[in-house]
Every structure is written in structure tokens, then in C-alpha cells.
Design a protein around this nucleic acid. Structure first.
Length: 263
DNA sequence: ATGGTAGCGCTGCTA
């Protein structure tokens, strides 16, 4: 099985590139973020024509998350599960079971700045994400939580950590909340496979940051141990950040080896 | 140099 996550930064603008990318990479499951579409504007029929079932949780203008699947979609949960707390007023999370694995597509709040109310919302959101995951998955089960976390887990995931002192994306509080997901049983499957720095998934559109190599690794694939143990290959597809009208994020792709019988 | 670009939608916010 091949699965991927991609913050497309407006599916309305990016649909041609997403279609082209799906044809080339052919993932079985794709989690998208920042579709910036209302549900009734989501191009489900276009994806159906490419062989994908889809579910979308959107609000229009901002946010919006989706899951595409060639291996079935059921047990869909849009927004946080009720038992985790109050529903999120933003469309930032959707979960579904595809091909025997529970997938969650997340668009974690940016935070804006450490003194902004939106940063407190980000911290509360991450705490609720853990409760959500604990409700719909188990550490010894098969689950994947992937998307735009807006957190660089370590300084090696940042092109110049000194520029992020006192800023969001690297603060101890948000990193600690990410670590709680790891403590629960979620493995950063890309980092488990590659130890190098300079492996980024997002680059600011401004100032030629992509071409200057000034990026962050904030698009993460977290998986339970049983899934992580099946990872055969993974890549951040930098080619998707090139060319005409790219998203500011690159997709992260993961291949699983065929599981043993009964696994 | 405290800059720069992109998307949404029409003024300035969000990232």
C-alpha cells in the first residue's frame, strides 16, 4: 500500500496539479489539507473518475481536509470525536478507515505567534488530537495520523533554528504535545527512516526560500508501531514543489511492504 | 533590507 499527505493550499487552484500528481504517483490513500473549499464544492466526481472514493470536511475560504482512497473508506469521522471535547469550529480534522488502516488527516492550527490567542488554540487542539486518537485507535492497532502539523519536531527540521527562537513551530510547549503523541505510540515514520537534516516539506513562497533551501519539515506521517514496521520506503516529493503554481508544501509519500498473512 | 509571495476576495487577513 502507498499512502501520502499533501497540504495543497487551495484545491480550487491546485486541482490540475493534484490530478497530474495522482496519475504519476498513484497512492492508494491521500490525505489533503487546506482544500479551502466548502463540502458542496469538493470535486468528488473528478477524483471518482481517477478511481478514488473521497471524504471531505470543509468550510470554504480557509482550512478544509480530505481523504481519498482506492481501498475503501468507512467509519468516517469529520471533526473531533464528540467524546474528545467540544467540536473544532474550524475544518481541520477528518478520520476514516481505508484498507484496514485508520487514517486521520490533520491541519494543525498555525499558532501565529506565542502571545496570540491562536497559539493557545493550537496547544488545546493538539491536546484534543491526542484524545481523539486515543478514542478511535489503539497503540497496538493499525493507525496513521498525517498532515500539516505546523510543528518542526527538532531543530534539524528547521533551516535556521535561531530564526525561530520565540516563534511558533518550534516552541517547547507544542513540541511537548507532539511528543505526547509519540509517547502514546505514534512513530514519525519519515524520521525513523532518514537521519539527515535539510529534509523539508514546506518552504515560504517569499524570497526564493525553496530555491535557497530555507524550509521546515512540518508535514508529518505518524503511525502506530505495526504500521511503522511495514514501511518499505518513504520520500518527500520535492518535485511537486517545483514548476508552475505549486503549493508551498511538498507531499510526503510512504510505501508499505505487503503484510504477512494475518498481519 | 524586519523585506518577500500566494490565496481569498475586495479590505486586509492568513499563512
Amino acid at each position: 500500500m502507498r499512502f501520502a499527505t499533501w497540504n495543497v493550499n487551495s484545491l480550487k487552484v491546485r486541482l490540475p496539479r493534484v490530478e497530474e500528481w495522482l496519475a504519476e504517483v498513484q497512492p492508494d490513500v491521500l490525505c489533503m489539507q487546506e482544500t479551502k473549499l466548502a463540502d458542496d464544492a469538493f470535486p468528488a466526481l473528478t477524483f471518482q473518475g481517477l478511481g478514488y472514493e473521497s471524504v471531505h470536511h470543509g468550510q470554504g475560504q480557509w482550512n478544509g481536509v480530505a481523504i481519498l482512497s482506492k481501498v475503501g473508506i468507512d467509519d468516517v469521522v469529520a471533526n473531533f470525536v464528540p467524546s474528545s471535547g467540544d467540536p473544532d469550529p474550524d475544518a481541520r480534522i477528518i478520520s476514516a478507515r481505508c484498507g484496514g488502516i485508520g487514517f486521520t488527516s490533520v491541519y494543525v492550527p498555525n499558532g501565529r505567534s506565542l502571545d496570540n490567542d491562536h497559539y493557545q488554540y493550537k496547544l488545546r487542539w493538539l491536546a484534543q488530537l491526542r484524545r481523539h486518537v486515543d478514542t478511535i485507535a489503539a497503540p497496538d492497532g493499525a493507525a496513521v495520523v498525517m498532515g500539516d502539523f505546523n510543528i518542526a519536531p527538532e531543530d534539524r527540521d528547521v533551516y535556521d533554528p535561531s530564526k525561530f527562537v520565540g516563534a511558533t513551530h518550534t516552541s517547547p510547549a507544542e513540541r511537548a504535545l507532539l511528543a505526547e503523541l509519540h509517547d502514546w505510540g505514534m512513530v514519525d515514520v519519515f524520521r525513523e527512516r532518514y537521519d539527515e537534516d535539510r529534509l523539508y516539506s514546506w518552504w515560504d513562497y517569499r524570497a526564493g526560500d525553496f530555491h535557497q533551501g530555507r524550509g521546515l519539515r512540518i508535514d508529518l506521517v505518524l503511525a502506530t508501531r505495526s504500521v511503522a514496521d511495514r514501511v518499505a520506503w518513504s520520500v518527500i516529493d520535492r518535485n511537486a514543489r517545483k514548476g508552475t503554481s505549486p503549493s508551498d508544501h511538498a507531499p510526503v509519500v510512504v510505501d508499505l511492504a505487503e503484510s504477512a498473512v494475518g498481519a
